[in-house]
Amino acid sequence: MTMYSIQGPCHWVGDKSETAPVSSVTEAMARINKLYEAGTPFFTKQSIREVSKQLQRSSLCKDKITVKGVDGVGVEFDVLTGEIRKGFDSGAFEHEIRDPYIVYCARVHMTQNLLRWHGNLPEATCSLRIAHWMSRRKKDTKEPAYNYALRESQVVRKSFRASRESWEASQMCKDLESILESVPKTLNIERVLGFSCGSMSIDRNSSRSEFQHALILTVRDWLRDRNGSGRVPSYVQDPVYTSIDKSTLKESNVMVLDDPQALLEIDDSSVVFSCSSNIPIKEIVADIARPAVLIWEHVGEEDEETSDEYGVYVCLVPCHPNADI
């Protein structure tokens, strides 16, 4: 599926909330910043779970998905599944709107949207929003039209094995293993979770994805040896995974979970890995749990809530004193 997305209309729910909806961009900015500075979690497992349950049972056109803003004000998002939209690139193509999914917005994304686009006020204080994937297809035959090349299954498996061997022989892998060996034995660690590691079967970014998945296997094997157990639960989550990716990872005993199930698996006994994610994984993790180990790209002082720098940073310090589990 070609990864286009679209968001439908949204509006405030006519309930009796203690807080009135914002009436201007200025008020929305002030409210978001005030809640953030007060330590209000923008993400909780409860809110993510509630939205996920609605998505599982409401996927027909004209259904509604209700989301609570960080200020407690309810917002309804329209479900558009099944609608057809004109193609962006040529009159020969069209887009079919597929299932809805959750868009995660950290404070920086919420305020940037307000500053750049003057925002849609009903969704202004929503850290969870609803959008839809769209599949590109030929208008006449309705056949799928892809913007990328998929590698064949046997090619992916062979390439992944080679990348894993290359990774395990690298100095970065040895440095990571050395750091992991310093993790206190008193910490109870039971599972490994990886986010936004990319597709190994999509040709344009396969190499980077293979090395990130190889890193996850290194962490999994370290934890298996550390705990003296034969099997360590290992999960990954990324909407771009193809059936080839899923079967390849399954052979390595790594399970692919749909969003947001892997997020809901994060707890104090987890190792979490993510490098340049397309969702604000740092902010989500900081609010919902205190993982034993965090591995992600280096974040400098200038990177408040996002970073595109490549490289890994291992954190052994619980990330948030007010985690909502």
Results as ranks from 00 to 15, higher is better:
Glu94Phe: 08
Asp78Tyr: 00
Ile102Thr: 03
Gly74Glu: 14
Arg49Phe: 04
Leu60Asn: 14
Thr81Trp: 06
Ser47Gln: 14
Leu115Gln: 10
Gly69Pro: 03
Pro100Ile: 13
Ser127Val: 08
Ser135Phe: 01
Gly74Ser: 15
Glu83Gly: 03
Arg57Trp: 05
Ser47Pro: 00
Tyr101Ile: 06
Thr125Asp: 00
Glu96Asn: 02
Gly72Val: 09
Tyr36Gln: 07
Val51Asn: 04
Leu121Asn: 11
Phe77Val: 03
Val70Pro: 01
Gly69Tyr: 08
Thr40Lys: 12
Arg85Leu: 15
Val70Arg: 01
Leu115Ile: 03
Leu80Ser: 01
Val73Thr: 04
Lys62Glu: 15
Ser135Tyr: 02
Ile84Asp: 10
His109Arg: 10
Asn113Thr: 01
Glu76Asn: 14
Thr111Cys: 01
Cys105Thr: 02
Gln54Glu: 09
Gly91Tyr: 09
Gln54Leu: 10
Ile65Val: 15
Thr81Ala: 12
Gln112Tyr: 06
Asn113Ala: 04
Arg49Ser: 14
Cys61Asn: 14
Ser47Asn: 14
Pro100Ala: 12
Cys126Val: 02
Cys105Arg: 14
Tyr104Met: 10
Phe93Ala: 03
Pro41Gln: 08
Lys86Ala: 15
Arg107Asp: 00
Ala92Tyr: 11
Gly82Trp: 02
Cys61Gly: 04
Phe77Ser: 00
Ile84Cys: 11
Lys53Gly: 10
Gln56Val: 10
Val75Gln: 03
Trp133Asn: 06
Tyr101Gln: 06
Ser59Pro: 00
Met134Ser: 09
His118Phe: 03
Val75Glu: 07
Arg49Leu: 12
Leu35Thr: 04
Val51Arg: 03
Gly87Ile: 15
Lys62Tyr: 11
Val67Ser: 06
Ser127His: 12
Pro100Trp: 11
Arg98Phe: 00
Gly91Pro: 00
Lys45Thr: 04
Phe88Thr: 14
Cys61Pro: 01
Ser59Met: 13
Pro100Lys: 13
Lys45Gln: 12
Cys61Ile: 05
Arg85Ser: 11
Ser58Glu: 07
Asp89Asn: 12
Ile65Asp: 02
Gly82Met: 08
Gln54Gly: 07
Phe43Gln: 07
Ser52Thr: 06
Ala92Met: 11
Ile48Ala: 05
Arg116Phe: 05
Val67Met: 09
Phe42Cys: 07
Gln112Ile: 01
